[in-house]
């Protein structure tokens, strides 16, 4: 089950958000939630680099609580994709990669209206993301 999706860039700009089956509504404003999520990811990333005894290049892939799983993927260009799913969802890394390749690149990177580093306001992009995630086997 996919709950919601967040996209950030490496400067912390909250680019995109969409939600599907979110039961608990946020108890803060949209932009505050974005900042809190960015802060969480940033701290987790730096913590993981310090903790790793063997190699410091790896970043984290996901974390799990008893109710949800947060899947994280960072592109080399510095975009951060986050999808919250139920705890049993698998293959999310590949799904996010496909989402980036088939939807983000096609509808944001190739869209001259979308400026880099600004929130994505394209309705077509939102529609395509929703459609893409609804088609995914992990969605149900």
């Amino acid at each position: 089950m996919i709950f919601n999706i967040y996209i950030f860039d490496n400067h912390g700009t909250f680019l995109f958000y969409s939600e599907y089956k979110r039961l608990k509504k946020a108890d803060m404003s949209y932009s505050e939630e974005g900042k809190l999520m960015y802060g969480l990811l940033y701290s987790l990333k730096s913590m993981c680099q310090k903790l790793s005894l063997t190699d410091s290049s790896g970043t984290f892939n996901c974390y799990r609580t008893n109710k949800y799983k947060l899947n994280y993927f960072e592109t080399p260009s510095g975009l951060w994709f986050v999808i919250n799913t139920d705890v049993n969802a698998i293959g999310m890394r590949e799904l996010i990669q496909q989402l980036y390749q088939q939807v983000y690149v096609e509808y944001v990177v190739k869209n001259p209206e979308c400026e880099r580093g600004k929130p994505v306001e394209s309705a077509l992009f939102k529609q395509e993301v929703d459609e893409f995630l609804r088609r995914a086997p992990q969605f149900r």
Binding site: F3, N4, E19, K21, R22, L23, K24, D27, E33, L36, M37, G39, L40, L44, C48, L51, S52, L53, T54, D55, G58, T59, F60, N61, C62, Y63, R64, T65, N66, K67, Y68, L70, N84
Partner: peptide, 23 residues
């Protein structure tokens, strides 16, 4: 604590397992 606050589901616990490539 933040992880449980940002949960899309009600009554979530905090982080139980964090997975990376190396640990």
């Amino acid at each position: 604590a933040i992880a449980s606050q940002l949960s899309p589901e009600p009554k979530s616990s905090g982080i139980e397992v964090l997975e990376t490539d190396t640990f």
